[in-house]
C-alpha cells in the first residue's frame, strides 16, 4: 500500500535564473525508477504540482524546478524546515534495461532534472551515457558540472549561443555517432525534433496538466499507438513507437 507523507525542506536554493534545487526529507521507498515524479501540495494552490525526481537516497528526495506561475513561485519562497504534503513514486519512469552501451540522454530546460538520476543508474550499470543539455541562454544553464562529476560525457547547447554549441540539442546530436539508444525530456518542440532526427530506439518523457497525478481523473490521457494512456500513470515516459504526434 501507498502513502502520502509530509516532507521537510532541507535545502531550497537558486541554481540558475528562476531555477531552484530543493532537497526534501522523508519516505522514499515508493520510488522505483528514474523519471518518476512527485506531486506536491502547495499552500494556496488547489491542485498539486507535479515535479520530476532528480535524485533520491534512503531519506531524501531532490527536485529541481523553475518558477513558472503561482505554485512554483510560492515554492521558491519556502524556507528550510517548512513541511510539504507530497505523493511520491508516481508514473512509470525510464527503462534502463534498454539503454545499450552508450545511450544518449537528451534534455532541455527543466527536462534536465530526471536525467541526473538516470545518468547515475546507467553509470552504475557500467554504461557510458552521453548527456546533451539544451538551454535558452547561459544564465539558464545548470547541472553541467554535476553530470561531469558523475563521470558522463556532457555537451551543452544554448539557443542564443551564449554558452556551448549555438542552437538546439539536435545541433549537438547531429555530430554524435555510435550511440545505442536515447532518453529525452524537455519542451514539446524539443521532443518532436529529437523524435524526428534521432534514428535509434528511445523513450521520451511528456508533461501534461494533471488533475490528480495518480490515474483517477483521466485529465492527462493521450492517444498512443497502443490506445489511450494516462501521462501520470502509464507515462510520463513513452517509448518512441507508442507516440502519436
Amino acid at each position: 500500500m501507498y502513502k502520502n507523507d509530509i516532507y521537510e525542506i532541507l535545502e531550497n536554493r537558486i541554481l540558475a535564473k528562476d531555477v531552484y534545487k530543493m532537497i526534501l526529507k522523508g519516505e522514499t521507498k515508493y520510488i522505483k525508477a528514474p523519471g518518476q515524479f512527485i506531486n506536491l501540495k502547495i499552500n494556496g494552490c488547489y491542485l498539486r504540482r507535479p515535479i520530476s525526481i532528480s535524485d533520491y537516497d534512503e531519506n531524501t528526495i531532490t527536485i529541481i524546478y523553475k518558477i513558472f506561475g503561482k505554485g512554483t513561485e510560492i515554492m521558491s519562497k519556502m524556507n528550510i524546515g517548512e513541511k510539504i504534503d507530497i505523493l511520491t513514486g508516481l508514473g512509470n519512469g525510464f527503462d534502463t534495461s534498454l539503454s545499450g552501451q552508450t545511450p544518449l540522454l537528451i534534455a532541455g530546460g527543466v527536462g534536465v532534472p530526471p536525467m541526473y538520476r538516470l545518468c547515475k543508474e546507467l553509470l552504475k550499470d557500467g554504461k557510458k551515457p552521453i548527456v546533451v543539455l539544451g538551454f535558452n541562454s547561459k544564465e539558464d544553464a545548470f547541472y553541467e558540472d554535476e553530470f561531469k562529476n558523475l563521470g558522463a560525457e556532457v555537451y551543452v547547447s544554448t539557443a542564443d549561443g551564449s554558452y556551448g554549441t549555438k542552437g538546439f540539442v539536435t545541433d549537438v546530436i547531429r555530430n554524435l555517432k555510435d550511440y545505442t539508444y536515447y532518453y529525452a525530456c524537455g519542451p514539446m518542440p524539443m521532443l518532436k525534433a529529437v523524435y524526428d532526427i534521432v534514428q535509434t530506439d528511445g523513450e521520451l518523457s511528456f508533461e501534461e496538466r494533471m488533475g490528480c497525478g495518480f490515474g483517477a481523473c483521466m485529465g492527462c490521457s493521450i492517444q498512443t499507438t497502443e490506445g489511450t494512456k494516462r501521462v501520470c500513470k502509464e507515462g510520463p515516459v513513452f517509448r518512441k513507437e507508442e507516440i502519436i504526434w
Binding site: L47, M210, C217, C220, S221
Partner: peptide, 9 residues
C-alpha cells in the same frame, strides 16, 4: 488536451 484548469478553490 488540456482538460484541466486550476481554480481558486
Amino acid at each position: 488536451l488540456p482538460r484541466i484548469a486550476e481554480c481558486e478553490r
